[in-house]
């Protein structure tokens, strides 16, 4: 019987140009057997959501180091909800202060992975929390 392949969108919203983290996580997800759609730098929330729709992903993983996570991550979850795509798991990673994490979770971001998290843990989290369609 056919089996679903996990598809994950790795995107960097906002203006910072530091994509090493996003590339490391994309490669770790590849090694976990996921199909990773990587969009590169400087993506608007609108673009990220349009891409998630066209690519039929199970998870959107947002990498942010610019400090604008409280604005942009909730924007992504809001747009997903508006398009009735909130069955997609949203996770975030990057330099995100601990006190911001509850706010992001409240806004619909499922989990935040801060520096030092083993990449295998992120992949495991996604495997365990997506709703395969």
């Amino acid at each position: 019987m056919a089996e679903r392949k996990i598809r994950v969108l790795v995107a960097k919203p906002g203006l910072d140009g530091h994509d090493r983290g996003a590339k490391v996580i994309a490669q770790a997800f590849r090694d976990a057997g996921f199909e990773v759609i990587y969009t590169g730098l400087r993506q608007t929330p609108e673009r990220i959501v349009a891409t998630a729709e066209q690519e039929d992903v199970d998870c959107v993983a947002l990498s942010m180091l610019s400090g604008s996570h409280l604005t942009l991550m909730p924007k992504v979850t809001k747009l997903l909800k508006e398009k009735s795509m909130d069955d997609i798991l949203v996770v975030g990673g990057g330099v995100i202060p601990n006190e911001d994490i509850p706010l992001l979770k409240e806004a619909g971001v499922s989990e935040i992975f801060t520096p030092g998290t083993p990449t295998s843990l992120c992949a495991e989290y996604i495997k365990n929390n997506i709703h395969l369609k």
């Binding site: 392949k5 994309a26 490669q27 997800f29 590849r30 090694d31 976990a32 057997g33 996921f34 199909e35 990773v36 759609i37 990587y38 969009t39 590169g40 993506q43 609108e46 673009r47 349009a50 891409t51 066209q54 690519e55």
Partner: peptide, 26 residues
């Protein structure tokens, strides 16, 4: 080895991502 993949072609085409007349699928 793992069956995983990095699908990165659309990086170059992302400016068309929101155009309703363009549908890009990796």
């Amino acid at each position: 080895y793992t069956g995983g993949a990095i699908l990165g072609d659309r990086i170059r085409m992302q400016r068309h991502a929101e155009d309703p007349k363009v549908f890009i699928r990796s």
